[in-house]
Design a protein around this nucleic acid. Structure first.
Length: 571
DNA sequence: GCCGTTTTCGGCCCGACTGTTTTCAGTCG
């Protein structure tokens, strides 16, 4: 059993929690949390790397944490964590997740009442002992009772597209209120992250109280948990947390910057301000009392000596340094996209005919589309065999004859079998323009077998696009274990493409893997993987994801005109 | 615990809201 990055991150998070309950130095705790975040989204498997010296080169990982990573990979354990668990009962962590309970109050519960987990807490409340502890009043008790009654874990993160269904109506409602001049959904929603934990809503208005009064009447709202003069928090009926912040016009840009995040990006920009002797907060950039910037985000960045940083890049992954050098990438946009190299029809598991998919692509202002129905394989519904694939190719040739200014590429999406062979023989692929290869089963092979399997498939002469390359399904399945660096190099060397799949539940590649791939010079294919005409809109998801991976127009094949695409695919 | 064209020691973002307070600590983002 190998150690994955998420195991390392989990260990660091647990250390941070337990240290906080112990009352350790908050900056030391922050270092562990930061390291956990970095490791969790790190594009390479740490276990595949060379060791301490390479770990130390990662910003945020120093000598001590590098040694701990080595120990965890080599032995599967961490002595420091084991010792910590003996000093602080590990179940106390679950108390930290309850509203109003932080490290100080958890420590008080442990020492005063011997409360170490949720059950202990329930019993203490039932016995009426909670309010005997200093700092615990009736208010906190009733909040805790409510939280304990709700049971289970708090609602997890929503897929971005699901969150959008709630964000858009809320935004419209708030924007319609009198006195409100502008509303933005900020946070990870605005950064285009693949999942959203809560909605951070920024409202430009002179007075917060009136806005919050109206918020209380919003039909989809379940409760308001906090409400002051500039800030209110509530929960929608579906459990989604909503934080609304009201700011005046002169602070709107600074507040939008602050509320968009990410946390690490904000900390970094605030440090920049500090170095110049200034102060950056949600109210603006200040030199003493004097406001230097704040009405617009552009103004805040400019005053800090930075070019405007698109929200998708704000993860403190080098964007601030790049902006200081005026070296940010010109991120890919919808208008750059000329075609889609991965769509399905009702010949396999799609719902629309070839003709309707073509019409939908034309309506999306695309100039080409590749029809890539599934090839026949175990578990694939209505997959095409060589004969049906040939008949579809005939139909596409005939339809291409009639089309003006639009091209249909003949393609297929073919399974990579467990041993790396393809589910169709090379001969059946020869006539096609685009061969999309993909893993659809056996996700749990060892990293070395999974890597060998995919590398072998990429050696097939006609394989051109590796679809949804990590295999992850958001909230359901993690990326499979595999040496992505080797796969990226193989794709580049054969002149193929890595797909960025825009299906809302996939968004695969992930942002950090896209960035890693581009650093290795790999070309992308941004694809909708549409199974119906209206799903061509999923291209938007692929574009957002590619932007988060620092992709420019030049990084994607399907920003090129049809002639160039054909020659690249045929080489 | 990390990090360094001011530093290898001494810093580490900043503000809102709540509750139990009587001037503020704790929590949250």
């Amino acid at each position: 059993m190998g150690i994955h990055n998420s195991d390392v991150a989990d260990a660091f998070d647990e250390i941070a929690d337990l240290l906080s309950i112990e009352g350790e130095n908050p900056f030391r705790i922050r270092a562990y949390r930061r390291a956990a975040r970095i490791v969790r989204s790190f594009p390479r498997e740490l276990a595949e790397m060379r060791g301490a010296s390479e770990f130390e080169a990662i910003p945020g990982i120093g000598a001590d944490l590098a040694k701990k990573i080595v120990e965890l990979i080599d032995t599967g354990r961490l002595k420091a964590l084991d010792a910590l668990r003996r000093r602080v009962p590990p179940q106390t962590r679950e108390l930290l997740g309850l509203p109003g309970l932080g490290p100080v109050r958890v420590r008080a519960l442990m020492s005063e009442l011997k409360v170490e987990n949720r059950q202990d807490l329930e019993r203490a409340i039932a016995a009426g002992r909670l309010t005997t502890v200093h700092g615990f009043g009736a208010g906190i008790q009733s909040r805790l009772e409510a939280a304990l009654a709700r049971r289970g874990a708090p609602e997890g993160r929503l897929q971005l597209s699901v969150a959008a269904q709630y964000a858009k109506p809320l935004r419209e409602y708030l924007a319609s209120l009198s006195g409100v001049s502008r509303v933005e959904i900020a946070g990870s929603y605005r950064r285009g992250r693949d999942t959203v934990g809560d909605l951070d809503v920024l409202v430009c208005a002179a007075r917060g109280a009136k806005v919050f009064e109206s918020l209380r009447r919003y039909a989809d709202l379940r409760e308001i948990s906090a409400s002051g003069t500039t800030k209110a928090s509530g929960v929608l009926r579906n459990g989604l947390q909503v934080d609304v912040r009201v700011v005046p016009r002169r602070s709107f840009g600074a507040a939008l910057h602050y509320f968009t995040g990410s946390k690490d990006h904000n900390l970094h920009t605030r440090r920049l301000a500090q170095e110049k002797g200034w102060k950056l907060s949600e109210y603006g950039l200040f030199e003493g009392e004097r406001q230097l910037a704040g009405a617009t985000e552009e103004g805040v960045y400019r005053a800090l000596g930075l070019t405007f940083i698109p929200p998708e890049l704000r993860e403190d992954r080098g964007e601030i340094e790049a902006a200081a050098r005026n070296a940010l990438p010109e991120l890919i946009e919808r208008a750059d996209i000329k075609g889609d190299l991965h769509v399905h029809t009702d010949a396999s598991d799609g719902t629309d005919s070839l003709e309707r998919m073509v019409a939908a692509a034309q309506a999306q202002k695309l100039s080409y589309v590749a029809i890539t129905d599934h090839a026949k394989h175990l578990g694939i519904v209505h997959g095409l065999d060589a004969e049906r694939l040939a008949r579809q190719a005939d139909a596409i040739d005939a339809l291409n004859e009639r089309l003006r200014g639009f091209t249909i590429f003949k393609g297929v999406e073919v399974d990579i079998l467990e041993d790396g062979k393809l589910a169709l023989a090379d001969a059946a692929l020869e006539r096609l323009d685009v061969v999309v290869v993909a893993v659809h089963d056996h996700f749990n092979l060892s990293a070395s077998r999974q890597t060998r399997r995919i590398l072998r498939a990429l050696e097939r002469p006609r394989a051109s696009v590796l679809a949804h390359p990590s295999g992850r399904l958001i909230g359901e399945r993690e990326p499979y274990a595999c040496d992505f660096a080797k796969i990226f190099d193989a794709v580049r060397e054969r002149g193929g493409c890595l797909e960025v799949n825009g299906q809302p539940s996939r968004l695969d590649l992930t942002d950090s893997l896209i960035k890693a791939a581009l650093e290795r010079g790999v070309r992308l294919s941004l694809a909708s993987d549409a199974h119906s005409g209206d799903q061509l809109a999923h291209l938007e998801g692929a574009i957002r994801q590619a932007r988060r991976g620092w992709a420019t127009r030049r990084d994607a094949l399907n920003t090129r005109p049809v002639s160039e695409v054909r020659s690249v695919l045929r080489q």
